[in-house]
Computed example of a mutant assay.
Amino acid sequence: MTADSDAPRIGSDEAGKGPVIGPMVAAAVRAPPGAIPDGVDDSKRLSPARRESITAALRECDAVAVGVAVVSTDRIDDPATDMNSLTVAGHAEAVAAVARDGDSVLADAGDVSESRFARRVCEGVADAGSDASVRVRAEHGADATYPLVAAASVIAKVERDTRIEALATEYAEYGPIGSGYPSDPTTRDFLSRYVGETGALPACARASWSTSADVLAAAEQSALSEF
């Protein structure tokens, strides 16, 4: 049995790694086991209403600390970095916001190598400005296995969805933006409309994504065909 001193006090996860629109959001939840609401699960398995109620319960509980890191589209498009490194950074920044000295962290692994992801997140906590010395373990699918990590996945998903809703309002004149994922026809239609009317990608789009390049190329081809 795992000793109490080794039991995770912090769970971390991210949402929005793959979309073409909007930021990636990482979250960390520091809590004792009894403070995690009943029925918490991988955010993808929960309804939006359930995710909202779990998030409210976590944020209102005095025993729970929540850290959120938002990785912007500009940061994602920076050629000096990559999504693996940004996923590490997001987890590390979220953990750094709540970590205390000696905490044990369990992260949903964002790398094929669980140990490498754990090591990089641990190093990143210090880089993010935290003085806390933490131990980090990472597992694939941790959000579906451990309530603490599932709680972080819910926080990250709700924060990401909130930001997508704000973008939908900001860009309402160009029609619905959809989920932001490349596989979503609504999202692709939104990008096509925006580029067709303005000649450029919206600031909320990840310009380095192949979907963005495809939309720009299609618009250029359409313009050429008009001559």
Results as ranks from 00 to 15, higher is better:
residue 13 D to T: 12
residue 15 A to F: 05
residue 80 A to V: 09
residue 28 A to P: 04
residue 84 N to D: 08
residue 115 S to I: 12
residue 82 D to H: 11
residue 13 D to F: 14
residue 32 P to K: 15
residue 20 V to E: 06
residue 41 D to N: 15
residue 111 D to V: 00
residue 89 A to N: 01
residue 57 A to Q: 11
residue 89 A to F: 09
residue 103 D to V: 00
residue 67 G to H: 08
residue 40 V to Y: 13
residue 33 P to F: 14
residue 53 S to Q: 15
residue 36 I to D: 03
residue 49 A to M: 09
residue 124 G to C: 03
residue 108 D to H: 15
residue 111 D to H: 15
residue 39 G to T: 12
residue 130 S to T: 09
residue 54 I to R: 05
residue 15 A to M: 10
residue 29 V to A: 10
residue 47 S to L: 13
residue 18 G to P: 01
residue 34 G to A: 12
residue 55 T to M: 12
residue 56 A to M: 08
residue 108 D to K: 11
residue 101 D to V: 01
residue 118 A to E: 00
residue 81 T to H: 07
residue 61 C to F: 05
residue 114 E to H: 01
residue 127 D to P: 00
residue 67 G to K: 14
residue 14 E to D: 14
residue 104 S to T: 13
residue 101 D to C: 07
residue 59 R to H: 05
residue 13 D to C: 11
residue 131 D to P: 00
residue 58 L to D: 00
residue 85 S to Y: 00
residue 88 V to W: 09
residue 36 I to K: 00
residue 113 S to H: 10
residue 77 D to G: 12
residue 127 D to A: 14
residue 87 T to E: 07
residue 122 C to I: 02
residue 92 A to K: 03
residue 50 R to Q: 12
residue 80 A to E: 10
residue 24 M to F: 11
residue 84 N to C: 03
residue 90 G to N: 05
residue 54 I to K: 06
residue 100 R to G: 11
residue 95 V to D: 08
residue 31 A to M: 10
residue 113 S to N: 13
residue 95 V to T: 05
residue 121 V to C: 02
residue 37 P to S: 13
residue 100 R to P: 01
residue 116 R to C: 00
residue 71 V to D: 04
residue 105 V to S: 09
residue 28 A to K: 14
residue 113 S to G: 13
residue 121 V to P: 07
residue 96 A to K: 07
residue 114 E to R: 14
residue 59 R to N: 12
residue 90 G to A: 06
residue 60 E to K: 13
residue 118 A to D: 08
residue 103 D to E: 09
residue 95 V to Q: 11
residue 109 A to K: 09
residue 21 I to V: 15
residue 123 E to Y: 10
residue 47 S to R: 05
residue 27 A to N: 03
residue 124 G to V: 01
residue 41 D to H: 14
residue 80 A to K: 15
residue 32 P to R: 15
residue 89 A to K: 12
residue 127 D to W: 04
residue 21 I to M: 14
residue 93 E to C: 01
residue 44 K to H: 08
residue 29 V to N: 13
residue 60 E to S: 15
residue 73 T to S: 15
residue 42 D to V: 12
residue 57 A to P: 02
residue 58 L to R: 08
residue 15 A to L: 13
residue 107 A to W: 10
residue 41 D to P: 00
residue 103 D to C: 12
residue 91 H to V: 02
residue 109 A to D: 08
residue 129 G to A: 12
residue 22 G to K: 01
residue 127 D to E: 13
residue 102 G to H: 13
residue 111 D to P: 01
residue 122 C to P: 02
residue 48 P to C: 12
residue 117 F to V: 00
residue 77 D to E: 03
residue 125 V to W: 07
residue 90 G to M: 07
residue 15 A to Q: 07
residue 34 G to T: 12
residue 17 K to F: 07
residue 18 G to I: 12
residue 92 A to W: 11
residue 110 G to S: 06
residue 105 V to Q: 06
residue 117 F to I: 01
residue 38 D to V: 03
residue 123 E to T: 06
residue 100 R to S: 11
residue 127 D to Q: 14
residue 121 V to W: 06
residue 74 D to G: 15
residue 48 P to A: 09
